[in-house]
Every structure is written in C-alpha cells, then in structure tokens.
Design a protein around this nucleic acid. Structure first.
Lengths: 229, 229
DNA sequence: GCCTGTTTTAACAAATTGTTCACCCAAAAT
DNA sequence: ATTTTGGGTGAACAATTTGTTAAAACAGGC
C-alpha cells in the first residue's frame, strides 16, 4: 500500500509538478487548493505526510499547520517563497518538521520527504514500481530493464514509456495521451516523437518473447499487448 | 452520481455532437451558446469541467476562461480552430488546463477530458467501452474485435461504425447520421462510403450468430438488430 | 565550456486504410 | 410487369498513418 502525501497548494502548476514527481516515486498524492479544503482532506485521508504552502487563500499555511498539529503528529513540510531565517524559525515553532523555499529542486523535495518520514519512524517504502512479464523485467526503482536475464541499458524516456504502456497491458493509448502522461501535460511537441521511442524500444525487445508485444493500433496509437492472462 | 460537464460553444452541431459522445460516456452535459450564458451556467451548475470554445459571440473564450479562473479552479479545456503553438501557450497562461484544436477527434476529446480530470484529482469513472453480444465482443479500450473467440483485425473506421451501431441496438441510423457521428461533423463525402464499410463488417460477421445482425432499413439506413430481449 | 549520450525534429519510404465509381441487383411504386 | 429508386459489391485510386533513418538540438557530467 502506497504512502499517501497531501499537497496543500493553490498554484496549480506547482501542485501538478509535485504530483508528477511524487507519483513517479510511487507515492499516492492528493491535492487541496486552500487551507480549509486542506484540513478537510487531511481528516478524510489521513496522509502519511503533508506538503503545505505558506501563502494560501483563506486560512494561511501557519493556521493549517497549527490545526493539524493540534490533532495529529503527522509530519509537515512547509513550502514558502520567503527564505528569511526568521520565517523558518517561526515555522518550526508552529510545529512544522521541515521547510523548503521556492523555487525548489524536485530532487531536494524528494530527499527531504524521505528524511522526514524516516525521522518519524515511517519506512518510506514506496509502492513497488516493478513489472514482470515473460522474459521482461521493468524495475523503475532501480531504473533497470532486464530482457531475458540480461540488463539492457535504457534511457529514461524509453523506460517510462514502456512502463506506462505495460502498466495497463492491452489498453490502447493515443500518442497525445502518451505525451500528456509520460512527457507531461504541458509538453508541446510532435507526436512522432512517440514513434521514435517506440521504435527504439522495439529494437531492444525484438523477438524476446511471444507472450507480449508492443503493438501499433492503426490510426489510434500503441499498446502493450499480452497473450494469455 | 455522474460528473457534470459544461460546454460553451455557439455552433449547435458541434455542441450536440459533443453532448452525444459525452453522455454515452456517462457524463452529465449542459450547453451554453455564448460567453455570458456560459458564465451564468457555470455559477449555477458548478460543473466538474468546462469545454470552452475560443470564438464566441459577445465575451470571447479567453474572457470566460479568465472569469472562471478568477473564481474557481475548475478544469477548463479550450476548443479552437487555430493550431498555432503561441495560441496554445497563451491559452495555458490564461489558466486553461488543456487545449484541443478543431477539427477534433472524439476519442481525443474523451482522452483529454479524462487526463485533465485525473490531474485534478477527480476520478473520471467513465462507462466501460466494451460491448458483448452472442459470440461478439467489441472492446474499444483495447481496440479489439473478437468474433467467436478469435480476434479479428479490424480497421478503425469499421470498429467505430460497429461500436456506434451496437451501442444502441435496434436503433436505425441514417447514413448521414453515421457520417456525422462516426466520421465527424465536418466530414463532407459520399454516403455510399458507409455502405462499403457496412459491407466489410458483414464479411467479418457473416453467419457468426443468429442473435444479432447488421440490417439494412430500406430507404432509411442501417441498424444493429438483436433478437430476444 | 566541452563532451557524451539522449531526445526531438524532419524527411522519405512503406504500409494500411478510406473513398469513389461503375455496374448490377433488389425492393417499392406505378 | 415495368419503372424507379435505393443498395451491394469489387476494384482502382487517393489519402492517411506509420516505420525508419539521419541529423540537429539539448542536457547533464566533468
């Protein structure tokens, strides 16, 4: 069961970006756009950790932080634009566990989340992102593709594309869907990009097994087709 | 409880067509013909998502988009004739969540709606796109036609035509209706095209079952007729 | 900043599908 | 029974979509 993280953030872009990265890491993410909804969601969903923006419409981040703290020990990481030390100190006094200033690096955020979780005695054990099919193993944690027992060095985009397709075997995805879901919703690029990545994946996977196949669905898109099931 | 979608679009044909498809997917649809009525409806009905045409009489789409955004984070997908990238960027800056250029494919629209809803943390829970009749399975997610247990490779237009007819068994469709609804509202071609596709479908389905049939209704059109029930 | 590997774009060839047309047959109308 | 209208079909042709290659753009590590 994946660990749940609640993001309370009114800027849609930032929230989506966080979601993208956290989900890729195997967390379950939910987003609340303001303080009140944030509290509500918190009570409903009992997340393992809260990422909390300071500047929020309605009740601000500090208020939310105090409210959560008054009813639970759930770790809280504050997100803020200001980098003043006094703010940081104040924040920690209000009960936050850590503090990240915008603009932030995703790597930074991930590292801090894991650190805070570990400090709180929670094992960050993320959902396994590992798929196994006949003669094919796709391990997104180790970032390794294994074909017929041999590791095949594979660039990230190809890994993620294959992972995405193979996560829902036999389901067709249009190129635009794949661009949205693998490249990101704000990607403006050519749909043929997908074709090229598919082709390279096929080179790596060619003739390995007759149990599955990267199949073209004409005028629609691609799917990872499996035989039996 | 079905998710509600508001369509703001002055072209009646396009709006109706969208309604048709969205309702088939299980959404609840309401339509507003111009910007002001669109805003009004938006406030009344609190839809889960808005499909918004850019070219509108009175207040244009961008204006509506800004107004909605100023009071809510409800996802907005813009519909527009222009395909310029700058327009797309501008659109996303105004607060739209996604952007579809006309003429659009219905499957594209559906896919994007789902993607946007998922991004917003709303579960799209749409109707399954799978039909099963005696010895016949039509799975639009996998894009597969199965006849008597065997997969039959079938081109997209045939799949969609059959899916369309079989979605409302025993209902007659005129050729023009089918051209509108399967080929697209802006399609301009010979009605005999439908005949040819029907013919090819019949070849694939010939003598498979006596429970259903692709039937001609003389001087009217075609229907997918089922026996009992 | 340079180097290396990755991603994207562009161009062309190949494959698949969609459309039209002509001709003939079937159903309704007279 | 004859005429008229609509439908079935096969094949040629057109259009669309995909595969593939190569080269340009880009990104991250040193």
């Amino acid at each position: 069961m994946a660990l749940k993280i609640l993001i309370v953030e009114d800027d849609r872009n930032i929230a989506d970006l966080l979601r993208l990265y956290l989900e890729r890491e195997g967390y379950e993410v939910s987003i609340a756009p303001d303080g009140l909804k944030g509290l509500e969601r918190f009570r409903q969903e009992q997340p393992a950790l809260v990422l909390l923006d300071v500047m929020l419409p309605g009740m601000d981040g500090w208020g939310v932080c105090r409210s959560i703290r008054s009813e639970s020990k759930t770790p809280i990481i504050m997100l803020t634009a200001k980098s003043e030390t006094e703010d940081k100190v104040a924040g920690l006094k209000q009960g936050a566990d850590d503090y990240i200033t915008k603009p932030f690096e995703m790597k930074e955020v991930l590292a801090r989340i894991e650190a805070v979780l570990r400090r709180s005695g929670i094992e960050p054990e993320r959902a396994s992102r590992r798929l196994v099919f006949d003669k094919l193993t796709l391990d997104m944690d180790a970032f390794e593709l294994t074909v017929d027992g041999k590791k095949i060095p594979t660039p990230p985009k190809e890994m993620e594309l294959l992972f995405h397709l193979a996560s829902s075997p036999n389901r067709v995805y249009t190129r635009n869907q794949l661009l949205d879901e693998v490249w990101g919703f704000d990607y403006f690029g050519d749909t043929r990009t997908v074709d090229v990545h598919i082709k390279r994946l096929r080179e790596k996977l060619e003739g390995v097994s007759d149990q599955w196949e990267l199949k073209t669905v004409w005028s629609v898109g691609y799917k990872f087709e499996t035989k039996n099931r």
